[in-house]
Design a protein around this nucleic acid. Sequence first.
DNA 1: TTTTGAGTTGTTCGA
DNA 2: GTCGAACAACTCAAA
Length: 453
Amino acid sequence: MTAIHWFRRDLRLGDNPALHAAAAQGDVLALYVLDPRLWVSSGAPRRAYLTRSLAALDEQTGGRLLVRRGDPRAVVPAVAREVGAAAVHVAASTEPFGRRRDDQVEWALEEDGRALVRTGSPYAVTPGRVRNRSGSPYQVFTPFRRAWTEHGWHSPAPDAAETARAVTFLDVGRSDAVPETPVPDGLALPEAGEAAALARWAEMLDGPLSHYRTERDRPDLDSTSRLSVPLKWGEIHPRTILADLSRRRGEGADTFRGQIAWRDFHADVLFHHPRAAHESLTPVVPESAWVDGPAEATALAAWTEGRTGYPLVDAGMRQLRGEGWMHNRVRMAVASFLVKDLHVRWQRGADHFMAWLVDGDIPQNQMNWQWVAGTGRDAAPYFRVFNPVTQGVTFDPHGHYVRRWVPELRDIPGKAVHEPWKLPRSAAPDYPERIVDHAHERAVSLGAYQSLR
DNA sequence: TTTTGAGTTGTTCGA
DNA sequence: GTCGAACAACTCAAA
């Protein structure tokens, strides 16, 4: 008997229960479907990364990954007919687009007498499972985390080597050509694939994890896991991470576990509120507070190109275009700046992030933007406005991060780099003037909030 | 049943 | 220079 494992956001062999569910039925056809709708909306950095991750997965399957281009609602049932598979196995999608698509694929398969079998999801606890005593989802992170911890999670499934031995992958011939995916000029992509993800995690466990609680906010240090990318693509599963963490003591492990909990929480909130992918869950300022038209375009251009005149903001925006990634602390600072200093709707910023982030993921990206904007379920209080100078001095105390990404400021030593306007113009003649005054715009934002209360 | 206290990520102001 | 309070409103769980 033949079964299909349809890979999506689980581009790995290890700790992949859905793949084992397929293998339990016989030989496995490893399938990936390049959906033009997703391909186009992914942005060049993610397309380039995906291509490389698929190449790594193909190698892991002995060159037997079948890649087909087209609408999964047509492609998946067609491939199932071709190979005579009774079932197509997947890890469940939980975000709005994927749920709808999977339901439609399931109906198409059922018309043909075949089944779509969902086993597991990209989360430690499948969204929708954590409930309070009255059966409702949690609105607030801390109680969610408590219940999530009590809920627990499965032990990891077999690792990649064992899986490769246990599963027989079918060779059904030629894949469709994957389109050319040039890497945008100057963009340094991280290495893709399961092996690279596990190597990065092993490095983290033996190094930065012990100082994670105190140093994770420092963009000038390599103190974070950078696992957002492999987690987005499922090159590693959070369950693998939690199992390793359970064997570690210390506040670093506990803080990192909290980040995994946040990831599950965001997926859970979006599961219960699909509209949160594009609408504010709780509008906190009147529509009139946002800029529109040419004013919005001008503000967005300065922000996306990293020429706002605020060094930390500009460094972050340039890191995004340079690496397809940005340090989390800086993501918050630039997001706060766009929403509360430039008065641009959070959705515009979220769209730009999705266009450039290699880890760009709807639940994490949109929910974090809503957190900063104060519109989320468990959002930042309205008065929490990040001061780009204070954030810079506090978290990039020597200015290393800013100088790395903003070469016009390279000659300003130490933390003075966060306030170049206090120096003679000759210290950084090519660096832009501030496009707004933070203190003033902060007051405007607080006023807008008051007006809706 | 009602009350109470705590809650990812900040900043400013006045004592 | 340091430090605590204030800046809302609401959810949730423990008392």
